[in-house]
C-alpha cells in the first residue's frame, strides 16, 4: 500500500502492519501529544502516565499484524488507552473506578446569562489555562475523559461512546456534565 503525507490514520496503520516502519513514525507523530495528555489528565501522575503511554503504544505495535479497519484509528487507539487505564485504576486506586459509574454529580445548570458579562479583571491567558486545567482536574474521571477525548482526539459523541465502551446517551451525558461544570468554574471568564 502506498503511503503519502495525506494518508489517513487507518491507511498508515495498514502500511505499518505490512512492514512500513515510516508509517508508524507518522502515526506516532500525529497522536503522541493527544494520547499523552489524555493519560496525564486521567492519571494525575506523570510517571504513571508515561508508563501507560509506553504500554499503550507497545500494545499497538504488538497488535499490528492483526489490525483491520473496523473503526476510526483514533477510536481504536483510545479504546486501547481506556482499557489500559481501567486496568491501571484497578491495580492502583480502586476507588477511582467508582467514579466511572454514572454518578453525574450536581445537576447541570443552564448557562448563566451573567456569563456574558465581561469580568472587570481579565486574566492572562496563561492563568486562564491553568484555571481550566484545575477545573478539569476536579471533574469525575468519566466526565473528564469524555471532555479530553473530544478535545484531544477530536472525537464525536458516538466515537467517545465506542472508545469508552458505553452507550451514546451515556457519553453525551458525561460530556454535557463536564462542559457544564467547566463553564460554571470558569464563570468569571465567561
Amino acid at each position: 500500500m502506498a503511503r503519502s503525507a495525506d494518508s489517513s490514520d487507518e491507511d498508515l496503520m495498514l502500511c505499518y502492519r505490512d512492514g512500513d516502519a515510516g508509517a508508524f513514525d507518522e502515526l506516532y507523530r500525529r497522536h503522541k501529544g493527544g494520547l499523552y495528555r489524555y493519560l496525564l489528565r486521567q492519571c494525575r501522575d506523570t510517571a504513571a502516565a508515561e508508563e501507560l503511554f509506553q504500554d499503550i503504544w507497545t500494545n499497538l505495535i504488538r497488535a499490528r499484524r492483526s489490525y483491520t479497519v473496523t473503526a476510526k484509528f483514533t477510536t481504536y487507539l483510545y479504546r486501547l488507552a481506556h482499557n489500559r487505564l481501567i486496568d491501571h485504576y484497578r491495580g492502583h486506586a480502586r476507588g477511582v473506578v467508582l467514579s466511572f459509574d454514572d454518578q453525574e454529580g450536581p445537576a447541570l445548570e443552564e448557562p448563566s446569562t451573567s456569563g456574558q458579562e465581561q469580568p472587570e479583571t481579565r486574566y492572562e491567558s496563561k492563568q486562564l489555562a491553568a484555571r481550566l486545567l484545575a477545573q478539569l482536574k476536579a471533574l469525575p474521571e468519566a466526565q473528564r475523559e469524555a471532555f479530553v477525548l473530544q478535545y484531544e482526539a477530536g472525537m464525536t459523541v458516538e466515537e467517545i461512546a465506542i472508545a469508552t465502551g458505553v452507550s451514546r446517551e451515556t457519553a453525551k451525558s458525561r460530556l454535557r456534565y463536564a462542559l457544564g461544570k467547566l463553564r460554571l468554574g470558569m464563570g468569571e471568564w465567561r
Binding site: R37, S125, A129, L136, Y151, L182, M186
Partner: peptide
C-alpha cells in the same frame, strides 16, 4: 472552552 483548553494543553 476548546480554544482555551488548546492553549493550556501543550504537554508532550
Amino acid at each position: 472552552l476548546a480554544r482555551l483548553y488548546r492553549e493550556a494543553a501543550r504537554e508532550q
